[in-house]
Structure formats: structure tokens, C-alpha cells
Amino acid sequence: MGAAPTRPLDPAHHFSFDSRRLRPSRRSARPGPVVKVKVAPWGRSLSGRGLAGSLFAAPAHERLDAAHALHAEGLAVHVDLIVRQDGTHRGVTPAQVRAVRSELPHASIDLHLIVEGDPRDSHTHAAIEEAIHMGLDLGVERISLSRELLDCYHSALQDARQRGLAVWCELPHDAPADPVAGADGLLIMLIRPGTTEAADPAGLTTVRALAGRVPVGVDGGVTETLARECADLGASPIISGRALLTTS
């Protein structure tokens, strides 16, 4: 299903949401899907402790199977929406997110919006607006984004918060360990967003400093060892991709 037409968004002004838009069709789940993507055994031991699998780590044609595999293990589904300057997506696409929700109506899903271009450009405006509307309409757990986007789209995001969508701020692990106004939680990035670098364990210092003061999660290159350490610190969500999902 394609995106429903939306009116242009001025990030500096208030706007309202129409909950009827982008309503997913509730197809019945596929009978006995053959899942090619598997969850690493260690992931099962962290079920119920905030672990989420990143669909971006799975090949595009296997992302729906990856979501099925995660949900079957009681794990959450994390979606990286990576928007280029021209408004197109190089990460998980909105259509893929809608397909996941359609087939898994009870899955826990969260969105991470990463904008590579100017967030005020008309093309990126449309993609950001779609992400916010989609988060509301599909009932995702939260949407995480940079401080720049949080500031630029403050009014729109506060509207979304009032409608029940949790808004989190993405925070580099070496940034000051302070709560961010207008954010419900902080997602500590152990790598640069949208990359496949190795995680910097020094980021756990920031997690320790914030734990208990504000909801805090971790993302980026999370291995089994890091995931267990983060779980012990009380971080949630704990987002892992390459170390958690394997293909066969």
C-alpha cells in the first residue's frame, strides 16, 4: 500500500493528525512461513529484558521474515528509516514497516528516523511527516531521532507525544549525559547512525550515568557481551542487528 497523500508540513508550526490515514490492512498472518532469518541463541535469553532486533541488518527481501523470527522469540522489532537528501529511503522502507504491522499486529515496533540531508528540504519534509504519521497510525512504541530533528520538528513531535507516541532523542555516546527537554528517553548511539562500525564500549559510561534518571536505550554494533552488560544496567531498548540476526 502506498503512502496516503499528506499536506505539506511546516516544522515551525502546529499541525494535527488524522488517525484514519495510513490505516494498515489487517491481513491474516501467512500460514507457516518459511523463515530464512534466524535469531541467535543468545537473544532468547534476553527476551523480556528490552532486546530488539534491527531489520536494517537483514537483506531487504528478508526483512519481513526477520520480523517474524524476532516476534516468535518475544523480541521487539527495530526499524531504521534512513532518508536521503532526495527523500528516498536507503534503510527499511515505510512499505516494509506497514507490511510488518499488517502481518504482526501485536509485535512491538519502534522507529529510528535518520535524515542524511537538510531536514528543512521539501523532500525530507515529506519523509519526516510520513514517519511521524506512520508511527502514530501503526501504534509503534517510540520514534527516535536526532536533537536537530527534535528541535526542528518540535511542535509536530509534541503533538505526537500528546497522541501517545513516545519521542526519544538519539544521543552520541560521548555527548553530555543529561536529559533532553521534549524527549521521553535517550537512545545512546555506540556508532554513527546508519553505519556498520564496531561499537565503542566506552558508551556504557554514558548509559551508567543516565540509568535511573531517564529511560535510556542503546543502539549500534551491539554484541552479545554488550547486550548483557546493558541489560544489567537497566537499558531498554537494547538494539542489536548483525550479532543477533543470521541468515540461512
Score class of each variant (00 low, 15 high):
196 T>L: 13
178 D>T: 13
209 A>I: 09
162 Q>D: 11
239 I>C: 04
243 A>H: 13
201 P>W: 10
222 V>I: 15
225 T>M: 08
166 A>W: 09
241 G>F: 01
174 D>V: 04
190 L>D: 04
176 P>K: 12
218 V>T: 02
190 L>F: 15
168 W>N: 12
192 R>M: 07
189 M>R: 08
173 H>I: 02
188 I>Q: 02
217 G>S: 08
172 P>T: 12
178 D>I: 08
210 L>S: 13
160 A>V: 03
183 A>S: 11
183 A>H: 11
170 E>Q: 14
178 D>W: 04
222 V>D: 00
197 E>Y: 08
223 T>A: 07
222 V>M: 00
211 A>R: 13
184 D>I: 06
204 L>P: 03
174 D>N: 13
229 E>S: 13
207 V>C: 05
219 D>E: 10
202 A>M: 11
169 C>P: 06
225 T>L: 10
172 P>W: 11
194 G>W: 10
205 T>Y: 06
237 P>D: 04
234 G>W: 10
197 E>T: 00
181 A>E: 15
171 L>V: 15
189 M>W: 08
200 D>A: 10
183 A>W: 12
216 V>Q: 04
229 E>W: 07
218 V>F: 04
202 A>Y: 05
229 E>Q: 15
165 L>I: 07
207 V>I: 10
183 A>Y: 13
177 A>R: 09
235 A>Q: 02
192 R>D: 12
176 P>L: 05
162 Q>F: 09
212 G>R: 13
238 I>W: 00
166 A>H: 11
187 L>V: 07
169 C>H: 12
167 V>I: 15
192 R>H: 15
241 G>Q: 01
167 V>C: 07
188 I>G: 03
170 E>S: 13
230 C>I: 05
197 E>N: 14
192 R>G: 04
173 H>Q: 08
158 Q>D: 12
190 L>E: 02
207 V>T: 04
176 P>S: 11
171 L>Y: 09
240 S>R: 03
238 I>D: 00
202 A>L: 14
167 V>M: 06
243 A>S: 14
184 D>K: 04
217 G>Q: 04
220 G>W: 01
180 V>C: 06
180 V>W: 10
175 A>V: 08
201 P>G: 03
187 L>G: 08
169 C>A: 15
220 G>R: 01
224 E>A: 11
175 A>L: 10
225 T>E: 14
191 I>D: 06
199 A>Q: 05
216 V>L: 05
201 P>A: 09
186 L>W: 08
221 G>V: 02
176 P>V: 07
182 G>D: 08
188 I>F: 03
195 T>W: 07
183 A>G: 10
163 R>P: 05
158 Q>G: 03
181 A>K: 11
208 R>Q: 14
214 V>D: 06
239 I>V: 15
180 V>R: 11
236 S>E: 07
189 M>N: 07
210 L>E: 11
162 Q>H: 12
191 I>G: 03
215 P>K: 09
217 G>K: 02
